[in-house]
Design a protein around this nucleic acid. Sequence first.
DNA 1: TAGATTGTTAATCGATTAACAATC
DNA 2: TAGATTGTTAATCGATTAACAATC
Lengths: 207, 207
Amino acid sequence: MVIGRLSLYLRELQLVLGANKDTISSSTLARRLGLTASQVRKDFAYFGQFGYPGVGYRCDELIQKIRSILGTERVWPVALIGCGNLGQALLGYRGFGNQGFSVVAAFDKQPGLIGKNFEGLTVQHMDELGDTAKSRNIELAILAVPASAATEAAQEIVAAGISGIMNFAPVTLKLPPSVSKVGVDLAIELEQLAFSVLAKQRTKDRL
Amino acid sequence: MVIGRLSLYLRELQLVLGANKDTISSSTLARRLGLTASQVRKDFAYFGQFGYPGVGYRCDELIQKIRSILGTERVWPVALIGCGNLGQALLGYRGFGNQGFSVVAAFDKQPGLIGKNFEGLTVQHMDELGDTAKSRNIELAILAVPASAATEAAQEIVAAGISGIMNFAPVTLKLPPSVSKVGVDLAIELEQLAFSVLAKQRTKDRL
DNA sequence: TAGATTGTTAATCGATTAACAATC
DNA sequence: TAGATTGTTAATCGATTAACAATC
């Protein structure tokens, strides 16, 4: 819960630093993110004393601290599983690199895709996942295959010794407790948006 | 909070129905999603009496109820803003159609993209957004432009009278309270995953 | 009827907020 | 010193869980 906000703070602090502001107060940061100053201070205090009374938080320092908590001081090599439409787009996505992630290998099962080159990466067959994961120290995988193939692919990912899966397929993966996951379901996000729009309309109608 | 889970229930119920099961109990549904049976029942009870004591919930009925709460009984026409890498992938994404969304128009500002055809849609210039939104009753927009262009694009979306934005750019949009948003930041999701993987490693090391 | 499962209440748990002494 | 802002405590708020009578 706190961890989710930590990422938001990090993103915002990078923007603030980019605007040449050295320090920021909890109240300013809170306003920018739509939170309360209390919550911001509480969140940071949970991990230590990061601020300076009377001054605020030093952006560069705080960015470092958050990075070290999240584990993104170093660069994580990532495997992409599934090189269809979405997978290819994710390969081209520049946002990962800035935040400490690098997609270093891409896999698929479709004969038509294997051997093809996307963004400097040659698509490998899934059978090579285990070996490549080992040799390249890959601990994270982005799963971008169709829903029907997701469960099987997840098993292969686990078998390859990878310990975190970012799942774009609209299914609930059943994984051993040692393996972490985050699910990104784009249709669900749109549903949440639709509900929110509708809720505002319903409120307005009621007045 | 509840609403987020409603979408998950919906997704799972569709799978259960696809497996030819007519009814499901709160405990089974909970187990499949990693929740408690109490929570599942509470969530549904919040919106009315949907179940049958001694029997469970009828999948088809419950799906209908959830759809009606979320507002996805009807199909929402959606505008895509930004037809780069990610935008094009989202155009090809099949998952939206099944859940009550249809991308019916695509926009960009890059002269090289305007007029091009992706998945049967011709890329229009942003200047046409207002007119098209009106004529096609578009209330939702998917914003898939680079971070540097996001704030300006968001303003144009709002000016076009659209009331919900799904934002893929890694910035916090400042919007009037009448406009809803959901943010999807892929780097943040990976950060959450990395933290979770690291947390498990740290726990293991401590033993 | 016996077994299963709901809807709902009351109890627990955790997260958020407000307030303020301590600090620069 | 005066003004600003933190870290932290205590109070509030909301969400989750456990338990069980009511229902099929």
